[in-house]
Amino acid sequence: MLEARDIACLKGSRWLLRGVALRVEPGEVLWIEGRNGSGKTTLLRMLCGLTPPDEGVIQWVGQPIVDAGEAYRRELLYLGHANALKDDLTLEENLRSAMQIAGRTARSDEFDEVLAQCGLIDRRELPVRVLSQGQRRRVALSRLWFPDAPKLWILDEPFAALDVESVQRLSDRLGRHLDGGGMAVLTTHQEVALPAGRTQRLRLDA
């Protein structure tokens, strides 16, 4: 499980976050809410280990994430604001290298299946340059559909730019991930139907 205590972040000379505590157990999703600039993205980046907190400690299964290092990063899938896609490469090339960098070499039939599930199969040979914002987001998100996906998903505005059908598909996928004992932390501005009873909410500007 993921646990954070007394997290604080100093931006310049102002406390962006102070005394933030959270705890996500297997099968739970944590929805982080807040206005623009309330520190949602910063908190997600801290949970990933990209930004060290100025105060407090973040633990993965009882061990500080700094010490867990590689073991933590293996269990983690982070998707930030940016999609990490290369304009000049095709959809499939992008996805393949992203998977390999994340340490999971997927088989060709798995690509076929995932791309079919995400409704991207007819675009697999296209360079990402020609895709729309929503399609790019779907390409980045399609990593979630691969078998044995990491246990902890940290998703920054995953529903942004998606159409209704894709939103539904993603929340279904999220539900199944939680059913399988997965965990997720996400931010979103939209009201999305997240699995009832297993959703915690954290308001940052409260």
């Binding site: 990063r73 940016a82 990490a84 992203a98 994340a102």
Partner: peptide, 11 residues
């Protein structure tokens, strides 16, 4: 484009 974040978070 966010690739560097993914590289940093790779195992």
């Amino acid at each position: 484009d966010g690739t560097l974040e993914q590289l940093t978070l790779a195992p």
